[in-house]
Design a protein around this nucleic acid. Structure first.
Lengths: 336, 336
DNA sequence: TTGTACGCGTTATCAA
DNA sequence: TTGATAACGCGTACAA
């Protein structure tokens, strides 16, 4: 009713009004001015739903967050999203995010997002091996960009942090500091990023001919609680590890608490390191040695990849980001 | 094209198919079964946009997060949202959240959400005095529910935690422990919740005839960094406070760090307390005395209020939630 | 119980 | 440069 009303109000046809409104060139300057003014006058607002139905585009990008823990979103990814959202907004795209409750079917939520142009594209995060989401997206030929590399991905469809290399370097750091028994508290085992991190750890250990006790490797949620339990586990082993690597700083906090409860002093007789450079790690006691990467850039990259896919833009993209060590006190051991 | 195709495929009319699909009673069981089967067969999926245009409803609820800090969302609110999202999902509503970049116009994003039925309702959080968002919503008669009470709100439109009472109680706790000089590191001053918290603090101080040094009251973002700076500020005063109340646990972490840097021992010669019962506070050193409220319930309540407004449901609602003290070590002072 | 016909607010095609 | 007119995919009075 709206554009029609505006047209009647101006004694013009709907089509002309539409063209004027949408910046087409084949409209006289005079008419366009009249239309713009009339729109202000009657406070005209285009109906987004109708636009979507007619044009087939929504200018919305979606992201469906997994509901692993009780957190809606992790602090690190929070920054990535804020940055992606910001760049998309500059190109007049809106990022909409939702989460799935434990009782909901993940694939169904993805379908709801794809059906009928709610979003023009989807960000997929926390990719998994044989990810059914990817399969569905491919099958439907729906535009998507992944945060997290998977074998077979081509450079225009993903961005990732080199988790393998990151944990390789962190492990090497501990080895060079004299550690031989290094535990690794990893994230959920089904995640591609957990697997990569484990690979990095293993590669470093192997390179230095250090044998790995399978019990040193634990998997759990990226929470203080799970990490504390896992830390207790590895520290109760007959031959306890002298260093504990954690999949992120939150886990490191939990590991530090658990180790202190057992009488170990993180940062002096036990080395603990995290990942992600969360602010919690900077203010922890001891401050947590961690690894940081450019979260802002990664978010922008996701947005750029999406725009390249959807629009005619041709941003240069960088698929891999490197995490580098942030030296702090939690892994300083006085007696090696 | 889709429902039409399905209809042709089944040799039925579009309307009959539509009715069968949407559970109308005036369809023969036989026909309905045929339609359902046919839908499976050709993998029919209703176009959400078209439904929206025809029905005027989207079954989407929106929430626009403010872009105050670099966080997409705070840990406490993360849980609230997860819970709201979950309850909404049970009623077949989808919660979509977005954030606004610093360069974006907040009101414009709200408008985009309202235009053309992207969402049926909006959650408004972090309400402010003379909130322009509320004014716009009222003017447009757009359904909304607030997290954060504002004068004039009626019981069906908001849910809130009694921030005034919470900080009154926390302040009283410190007074009863012997403190007379109590600083208060509050959140951004424009937020209604910051104002309420300040009121509670003042009421407790006044009741006990304790005068307040204006310099004891500071406002800043809910971040470790801002809190650390503010703590340094108040601890450098000639007559330094013996207790510091913080607007949340993240701030308490920053305050503890700053005070230790200045040679004070939080938990023994300086009392520090937070709010929100974040996990970071449980693992802090010393563990942070805090206040907790039922985040899950609050989220559910938001969802229920929204459903009551949009649907024919009549959930009982509780507008106010109470935060209660979680006793830990950061405010234990050995010498009072 | 089923079918016809129209409306939802736009965009897009084709003439004029 | 403008204006009819037909999509877009679905819901829904109203008629059959």
């Amino acid at each position: 009713m709206s554009i029609k009303k505006l047209a009647e109000h101006l004694n013009l046809s709907k089509s002309t009004v539409s063209r004027a409104l949408n910046g087409y060139t084949d409209v006289s300057a005079e008419t366009r001015a009249k239309v713009m003014q009339g729109a202000k006058d009657i406070n005209y607002r285009a109906n987004a739903t109708a636009k979507r139905l007619a044009s087939g585009k929504s200018r919305h990008i979606g992201i469906i967050l997994p509901s692993n823990d009780d957190m809606f979103i992790s602090p690190a990814f929070s920054k990535v999203l804020a940055s992606a959202s910001s760049l998309l907004a500059k190109h007049d795209y809106l990022l909409i995010v939702t989460t799935i409750a434990p009782f909901q079917n993940e694939l169904k939520v993805y379908q709801d997002f794809m059906n009928g142009g709610l979003v023009d594209g989807l960000f997929v995060v926390r990719t998994r091996k044989d990810d059914e989401r990817i399969q569905m997206l491919n099958q439907r030929k729906f535009p998507y960009i992944c945060h997290g590399y998977l074998p077979g991905f081509t450079s225009e469809m993903y961005v990732d942090v080199d988790n393998e290399q990151a944990f390789y370097e962190m492990t090497i750091k501990q080895i060079l500091a004299g550690h031989q028994q290094i535990a690794f508290l990893d994230g959920p085992s089904e995640l591609a990023l957990s697997q990569s991190r484990l690979e990095g750890y293993k590669r470093a250990m192997n390179e230095h001919n250090l044998s790995i006790n399978p019990q040193w490797i634990q998997n759990g949620r990226l929470s203080e609680e799970d990490a504390a339990n896992m830390a207790k586990e590895v520290l109760s082993l007959a031959k306890r590890p002298t260093a504990i690597l954690c999949a992120d700083d939150i886990m490191a906090v939990g590991a530090i608490a658990a180790s202190e409860a057992l009488g170990f002093n993180a940062g002096s007789d036990l080395a603990i390191a995290g990942y992600g450079d969360y602010s919690v790690g900077r203010y922890s006691k001891p401050p947590i040695t961690s690894m940081r990467y450019d979260t802002e850039k990664v978010g922008e990259e996701m947005a750029k990849l999406m725009l390249n896919k959807l629009e005619s833009t041709a941003f240069e993209v960088q698929n891999w980001y490197k995490a580098s060590i942030v030296e702090r006190q939690s892994d300083q051991v006085t007696t090696a």
